[in-house]
Design a protein around this nucleic acid. Structure first.
Lengths: 228, 228
DNA sequence: GCTCAAAAATGAGTATGCTCAGAAAAATGG
DNA sequence: CCATTTTTCTGAGCATACTCATTTTTGAGC
């Protein structure tokens, strides 16, 4: 038998970290942390990749083994948090509340996250929307999965009788996602007026999607106005 | 009075080209043309600013007096065309057709334009959405103006009785713009399946916005289904 | 025409994202 | 324990977007 100096942990196939893999994970974490700190303190454009490498204690070239571009470093930093927020929001969903309220509950999480550093968030959204898909088409998967979850909310609302039986669930999910995304971009660009709140805008946008434009609809939202 | 050598054209305040202004316009046009040709033949990333400068017959530094960044060169090339398409589409609007048809008429123009070079179009949309506003906030103005025109279409439809009297016109314009934008981005990213058509997607998305989700709505689109 | 101030153009220089040939480190095998 | 192969790391170097001190051009007053 080969002498293994620290015999305590023979590598098992199922969960064999292996020195190599462990080092890689550690390095990735150091890079992530360095990027997070620098982006937060100096901003994205003002941070150089060399700084990040130095702070993470790796060579400048090494950085680009873990992220193909500077923008991917930003993804590394934020994608994690976005996913966490998504999970948390669906976990704490008020399952008995009306659809509109549920949707606002979900999206509020994202707005709150992005509010912490709107400039950085803006860069992140820009990248998330337009990044070239890697070997696997990761980027699209995430959006699709999210739209599907929204469709799930609509499906549940249909069960409750809040929604007509013949609506296309996938399309409904897509539409809500779309309205959210555009509102978010406008908000991050300061187009809603500086410091203005996203909430009433998103709420009215969603309400209009729920109610529709047709003259047949009418009373769903509450206040109707006189025809001129 | 000052001696003006070619006395035929004393500079008038209203429309005084002036040698300076004329040269500037000419140079801008040369730059625009050079950028257009190179972007079209080699792609955006593969084209260097030096190439554009050389082809336009100006110094490399001069380029950045006319466009602050390489991306603004792309705006220079495409914004013009987008505006032209917008005008043309509203001019040829089928004023008696239903709202859905009118909307598709307008947006078809954009999709057709972008279809000529989807990769370039993608870069353009990316820039148009996320460019820092210059001294004046040009970028936002354009989108607002466009959304306002859409709101105008909805207003006209309301006159015709196609749309309920109590809908928020501005919000309706915003929602249609939003649905268009997201569909466009998905299409340009190839998320609708490669070579797939944008039309049915956009049509269904708009139809859902017109009809709404509520169980009260029903008959607007035509075919209604029984509740299960 | 000549002089001079203002505007515009220039291209050598700078900063920085990213590459790649070679070095170092880890696994593998005897 | 050493030899060999495979994987990972590295930083000098490259490409190129953009800057800025200097030069050139324009137009007005005399």
């Amino acid at each position: 038998m080969v002498t293994s100096r620290r015999g305590s942990a023979p590598p098992k196939a199922a969960e064999a970290p292996g020195l190599r893999e462990r080092n890689k994970q550690e390095k990735l974490e150091r890079i992530r942390e360095a990027a997070r700190e620098l982006f937060a303190s100096k901003g994205f454009a003002e941070t150089t990749t060399r700084e990040i490498a130095e702070r993470a204690g790796v060579g400048t070239g090494t950085l680009f083994l873990y992220a193909r571009t500077k923008e991917e470093l930003l993804m590394l930093v934020l994608a994690e948090k976005v996913e966490a927020v998504q999970e948390e929001r669906f976990r704490t969903l008020p399952t008995r509340a009306p659809l509109l309220e549920q949707l606002l509950h979900v999206f509020e999480g994202f707005f709150r996250l992005y509010a912490k550093d709107p400039a950085l968030a803006r860069m992140f959204i820009r990248e998330a929307l337009f990044m070239e898909p890697g070997p696997a088409g990761e980027r699209l998967q995430l959006e699709r999965a999210f739209a599907a979850r929204l469709a799930g909310l609509v499906a549940a609302a249909r069960e409750r009788g809040e929604v007509a039986g013949d609506v296309d669930l996938e399309m409904a999910g897509f539409n809500f996602f779309s309205l959210y995304l555009t509102t978010l971009m406008g908000w991050l660009s300061g187009a809603l007026g500086p410091g203005d709140s996203w909430r009433p805008v998103l709420e009215r946008s969603f309400a209009l999607q729920l109610k529709g434009l047709g003259p047949g609809a009418g009373t769903s939202g509450g206040n109707r106005r006189r025809r001129s």
